[in-house]
Simulated assay, not measured.
Amino acid sequence: MADNKRIPETSPLPWAREVWAQLQGARQAGRLAHGLLFSGPKGVGKRHLVACLAQSLLCRSPGPDGNACGQCADCLLLAAGNHPDLIRVGPDPESKSGEIAIGVVRLFAERESLTPSRAAWKVALIDPADRLNASAANALLKTLEEPAGQTILCLVGERMGDLPATIRSRCLQLKVPTPTEEVALDWLRTQSARQDWPLRLRLAHGAPLRALAEYDDALMEQRRARLQGFLDLAAGRVDPLSEAAAWHKFGDKLILEWLASWICDVLRLMVDGEAVRLDSPDQRSAFAALAQRIDPASAHRLLKRVIDGRPLLEANVNHQLLLESLAIDWLRVSQGGNARRP
């Protein structure tokens, strides 16, 4: 969005300050763990917090609260993306799997064994750590067991349960919280003057950075169109295969997220017609009408099929056929029929 401000990476976001204080307290006491595992939902600011920590550790003159000065030679090198003591470990951009391979970890281990070039620390960002394949995770385990004295490893990801327990047990685990809606909205309004931040924040499942970065005007228009298609399909006004083709053209992963949230809202309204917490509060009346005519058990089965479809997107399955099957099921369920069992 053109009117967004750049979020400074020298100080933590308001809802992450408790975690920041924990880190700085351990640092000042000389007890900062060599392995730090940052988790939390997408868009709550995990990577921003890690960037702040890297700045703080590499800065020559951090403030009393640990915030980097942003002006010293090391801070300027970081801003330019050229600091030799910051190592980034991630998937090969050319890899289709999106995994972090063992070769990348081995190369990092060679660099990790070297002493820092300029700063007091060498900082490694492993992101997304939940995409380490089994061989890479085993290779990283050795580094975590015998870290160089001046190296901090920061592992970041959304699905840390996918990491081996041996890695998780050797890291200090830090969960970045989802802020309250009030705190998130207060912060978002400092970034951009919008009247519909409450809706965008709900669509981003309460994650402020996701609301800010993803839910721009173009995506909101796409949502409007796909939501209209969802409702038209329920009314029998569109063909399920045509709507599924539009879903596939837009993006399979986000469509499944939206389908799950829309069906969840319908189910919430079946239980309580005055339900306060809806992912799409702007669709209350339309979803309430659907809730009156849909069989709850069928809706639950369809929701399970949508949720089970998410990991299939990363497998070798035909995405369009999956969406077509879900569109046909939604038509059947919304007309009072039964969804196929998962």
Rank of each mutant, 00 (worst) to 15 (best):
A26N: 12
G30R: 03
F38C: 00
G40R: 02
V44F: 06
R47Y: 06
V50Q: 04
C52H: 02
L53G: 01
Q55R: 12
R60G: 05
N67Y: 11
A68C: 10
A73Y: 10
L76V: 14
L78T: 07
A79V: 10
A79P: 08
H83N: 14
P84M: 13
L86P: 01
P91K: 03
P93A: 13
K96E: 13
S97Y: 09
G98D: 03
G98N: 04
E99I: 07
I100M: 08
G103R: 08
V104L: 05
V105Y: 00
R106C: 02
E110Y: 03
L114Y: 05
A119T: 06
V123I: 15
V123W: 02
I126C: 02
R131P: 00
N133S: 03
A134L: 09
A134W: 05
A139E: 01
P147C: 06
P147W: 00
C154L: 10
V156I: 14
G157N: 05
M160R: 08
I167W: 03
I167R: 06
S169W: 11
K175R: 15
T178W: 09
T180D: 12
T180F: 07
D186V: 04
R189G: 04
S192H: 13
A193L: 14
D196I: 04
P198V: 11
R202Q: 09
A204Q: 05
A207Y: 01
P208K: 04
A211P: 03
L212S: 03
M220F: 09
E221C: 05
R223Y: 05
F230E: 06
L231T: 05
A234S: 15
A234V: 10
R237F: 11
V238H: 07
D239Q: 08
S242I: 12
A246K: 11
L254H: 14
C264H: 06
L269K: 06
M270L: 07
M270S: 09
E274V: 06
A275T: 10
R277P: 05
R277F: 13
D282H: 12
Q283S: 14
A286W: 02
A291Y: 06
R293W: 08
I294K: 02
A299K: 04
I307E: 14
D308A: 15
P311E: 12
V317C: 14
Q320P: 01
L321I: 08
L326F: 07
L326H: 02
I328V: 15
R332L: 04
Q335Y: 11
G337D: 11
A339R: 00
